[in-house]
Design a protein around this nucleic acid. Structure first.
Lengths: 336, 336
DNA sequence: CTGAAAGCGCTAACAG
DNA sequence: CTGTTAGCGCTTTCAG
């Protein structure tokens, strides 16, 4: 049976009120008594019951992290950033894998709210019905989203500048002299990927440079990248560069290229997006747009922590994090 | 202000006791009243406060997962298995990254215990002092370890059969006709890796086959693999095969091989361990020992859940999960 | 500065 | 079958 506040109060010859005050470091306790209490607590190896404390204070010092899948290295890195930031602030993080399934997302958030978490980080609410989104908005706990949703929702957001990232990739390939550039991306309505796509179109400046963009939609997975690339190779042998919507798609492209006897970068230039750890390891090392994944997680937690303090004025906060083109060895210039 | 049990009791014209009984589905409630309560709860969108429930019942329906780093794909997969199993049982998982730092490990478990988690999954307690280990043993909550510690500790364990995995790798390479085989592994005292090493030595059956094993210790990371391989290549040009202690080490070997102009599998055969997703994507696809990562996570949660029920007879449970050699294209036979 | 007492929201005997 | 009554362990007024 764990030792409780009552135990240490008795042992120290005070009431549990002063014991509590001493332990929580509140003002208004004689120094001597506080030290006495602390000593007893130490001796008895007292461990406060945070469940009880949570019930009394209404704050659980716990955050919820609802992502699609922790096995996705992007989210693993993000989760690590979030967890480090939470840990530094004395909070814990509950991990939830939603697979972007609406029902799972809703039931996870429901459970988290029942546990009275101080805030929730979520992938995206794009797939949810309007009613579900509304339900989340007035759930009481602050929520930060990992994309930039259209519409004026009452959520905070942390997101990398996807449009700018796409633009960087487009500019870069156009500058290298590529004139037929394919962009392999995910489904049309995927917020982040769509932003990368429009950024890419802006970046190539087709009117001025005469670059022909080929946009292909598919699964934003390794297999999806592989399939999209395979089809592309049979249809358009004149493509000299590909911008993949993310690194994993790019890896699929690499595989398809190898199978088609295309060499990277000699026959085909390739740019990814994310800069997952693997991208630097792969052969050839992938040129890609770096996304500050760890920092996204950190920022989301910071926002949540701040928001969970002012219970009154909860103005949502929005952060757009910068991107960076990491030039490695998967692209070559077509200019002599 | 969230609606409480009291609210719905009043609205339904019963006491909170019957309300509670109706909601928790306990026996001894008239069907009609139960349904009335349920209807009211539904209408008022009642959400039980699990913190309060936890305080009253002593069970939090929360598990702690203390691993070294979620960015390690091995742990990500394991975490996913654990989370899925927990979710299916109506539990949540708190994620903690310890970096295998003793202090962090202890303070995380401390916090988890203060939150009254129903159980904890831990990487390993090998680095902890005897006193710290003892402290964990009588912490009250069941703990399952992800390795097979020496000594008779009061912990449960879930672990893959590392020795058998090493043996499979050794047998395989010897059978292909390799006669000088290097094993690149981590520090000497790393339980799991040591088991793989001894398994490997058993597998090659040096006495019968005449295989010469070369054991090299280093960092069990990409960089470590790269460094160990580089040194090896300068010292022993007669090595024709390498068994890497894990896939990440193997990736480092691949990189070093490329830089040294060695082709895999033509000039060098390579076997990994773990079968991380990447290993099938890499070029050439890596032959490796498959470890059921997802299942480890699942099994650990199952054990914890079972143990957290019988508060009395808590006999630790030990599970050793099978391994499998996944033959891909990173090895070749030296026999004609 | 410290004690007494009222909750936080829910569960679980124990009566009726 | 339902109500009454104690708590669970801690925080936090409100008095003294």
């Amino acid at each position: 049976m764990p030792v409780t506040l009552k135990d240490i109060a008795e042992a120290a010859g005070v009431t549990i009120a002063t014991a509590s005050r001493s332990l929580t470091g509140a003002y208004g306790v004689h120094r001597a008594t506080r030290e006495r209490v602390l000593a007893v607590a130490e001796r008895l190896k007292y461990r406060p019951n945070r469940v009880a404390r949570g019930l009394a204070t209404g704050r659980s010092h716990t955050l919820g992290l609802v992502i699609s899948d922790i096995r996705n290295p992007f989210f693993a890195e993000l989760a690590r950033g979030a967890e480090d930031a939470a840990c530094a602030a004395g909070c814990e993080v509950i991990l939830c894998n939603s697979d972007l399934d609406c029902d799972k997302q809703m039931s996870y958030t429901q459970s988290l709210l029942e546990k009275r978490v101080d805030g929730i980080i979520m992938n995206s609410v794009a797939g949810l019905s309007r009613a579900q989104q509304q339900q989340l908005e007035d759930c009481g706990a602050p929520i930060v989203l990992l994309n930039r949703p259209r519409g004026t929702l009452n959520f905070s957001t942390v997101c990398t500048d996807n449009a700018r990232g796409g633009e960087l990739a487009g500019e870069y390939l156009a500058r290298l002299g590529h004139r037929v550039i394919a962009h392999l991306t995910g489904p049309k309505d995927h917020g982040n990927l769509s932003d990368r796509c429009s950024g890419f179109l802006k970046g190539i400046q087709a009117r001025r440079t005469g670059v022909e963009p080929i946009i292909i939609h598919g699964d934003h997975t390794f297999h999806g990248g592989y399939e999209m690339a395979r089809k592309l190779f049979t249809r358009r042998r004149d493509v000299t560069a590909i911008f993949a919507g993310n690194d994993v798609i790019a890896f699929g492209v690499v595989r398809a290229a190898i199978e088609n006897g295309l060499r990277i970068p000699d026959d085909l230039s390739l740019v990814g997006f994310d800069n997952v750890e693997l991208s630097g390891i792969l052969h050839p090392p992938l040129t890609t747009v770096h996304q500050p994944k760890y920092e996204i997680g950190q920022a989301a937690v910071e926002i949540l922590l701040r928001l969970s303090k002012d219970t009154n004025g909860r103005t949502p906060e929005h952060r757009l994090l910068g991107v960076q083109l990491i030039e490695r060895q998967s692209c070559r210039s077509l200019k002599r």
